[in-house]
C-alpha cells in the first residue's frame, strides 16, 4: 500500500531523509524506531502529502502522490487515520466538537445523528464521560484517546498512522493506548507507528524499522530486532531489560 522509492527530504539546509526506500502492505503493523530528530514524523507527513520530498517517489495504492494537488490528496488522506504527536486536538473546541469536527464539515448528518455517532466513537475509546470537557482538562491518556476517536470519525481508514502515540504517558496509560491501538487493528487493518519507545512498539507491531541519520539501518521482525548487533538498536532495546 505504501511505497517509498529513494526518497530524499530536507528542511531548508538540514538533510532529514537520505535515500529512504521501503514498502508496507495494507495489513502490516510497522513500527519506525529512532531517536528524536531522525525524521520519523517526517515519514508520516510524507505518506499523507503534508510535505513533499526533494526527490524520489512516494506511491500510495499504486498512485504516485508526490505531485498531487492539495485537493487530490484528500482522497489519499482518507485512506489513513492519523494521530499526531500529543494528539493535536483543536484546543478551542471541547471533546465532542473535536470528534464531530469532520462530521460537521463533510457529512450531511443532523445534529442528533452527529451526537449519536460521536457518543458511539467515544465509547469505543472509552472516554464518553469526557464529552463536554475542554481539551486542556484532559489527562495525557484521555487526550490520545480523543485524538484516536477524532481520527476514527474523520474517515473509514484502511491503515492507522500514529506519531509517538504513547510518549509522555505513564506505563499504565501507555499500555492502555497500546491495547486500544491493537483493538482497532483486530479486523486485519495495518498500522504505522513512529516512536522511540521500543517496549510499546513491540506490543503493537510485528515489523520494525530503525532510522539513523536519515537512513533506514534496520528492517526486520521482532526476533531480528531483539538480536540485532547494531549498537544504536542495542541501546534502544536495553530499555526492555529494565
Amino acid at each position: 500500500m505504501i511505497v517509498f522509492d529513494k526518497v530524499w527530504f530536507s528542511y531548508n539546509t538540514q538533510q532529514v531523509l537520505k535515500d529512504v526506500s521501503f514498502s508496507i502492505n495494507e495489513n502490516e503493523r510497522v513500527a519506525i524506531l529512532g531517536g528524536s530528530g531522525e525524521g520519523k514524523t517526517t515519514i508520516l507527513k510524507l505518506i499523507l502529502g503534508i510535505v513533499r520530498p526533494d526527490s524520489g517517489e512516494i506511491v500510495i495504492d499504486g498512485e504516485n502522490i508526490t505531485s498531487k494537488t492539495e485537493e487530490d490528496l484528500r482522497e489519499v488522506r482518507m485512506k489513513f487515520s492519523i494521530v499526531f504527536q500529543e494528539g493535536a486536538l483543536f484546543d478551542s473546541l471541547n471533546v465532542k466538537e473535536n470528534v464531530a469536527f469532520c462530521l460537521r464539515e463533510y457529512s450531511k448528518l443532523s445534529e442528533d445523528e452527529i451526537d449519536r455517532k460521536v457518543r458511539e466513537i467515544l465509547r469505543i475509546v472509552d472516554v464518553e464521560h469526557a464529552m463536554e470537557l475542554m481539551t486542556d482538562e484532559l489527562s495525557g491518556g484521555m487526550h490520545r484517546r480523543v485524538a484516536i476517536a477524532r481520527s476514527l470519525a474523520a474517515s473509514e481508514p484502511r491503515m492507522f498512522l500514529y506519531d509517538e502515540a504513547t510518549t509522555g504517558l505513564d506505563p499504565i496509560n501507555a499500555d492502555n493506548i497500546c491495547r486500544l491501538i491493537l483493538d482497532l487493528c483486530k479486523n486485519g487493518k495495518g498500522l504505522v507507528i513512529v516512536t522511540h519507545k521500543v517496549l510499546d512498539a513491540i506490543k503493537v507491531a510485528n515489523r520494525f524499522m530503525f532510522l539513523k541519520e536519515g537512513m533506514i539501518i534496520f528492517d526486520g521482525d521482532r526476533d531480528k530486532l531483539l538480536h540485532s548487533t547494531v549498537s544504536e538498536i542495542q541501546m534502544f532495546i536495553s530499555e526492555l531489560n529494565i
Partner: peptide, 14 residues
C-alpha cells in the same frame, strides 16, 4: 507547533 494545522489539512480543510 501543535500540529493542529496539519490535522486540518489531513481532514481536507484548507
Amino acid at each position: 507547533l501543535g500540529h493542529q494545522v496539519d490535522s486540518l489539512r489531513v481532514f481536507g480543510v484548507d
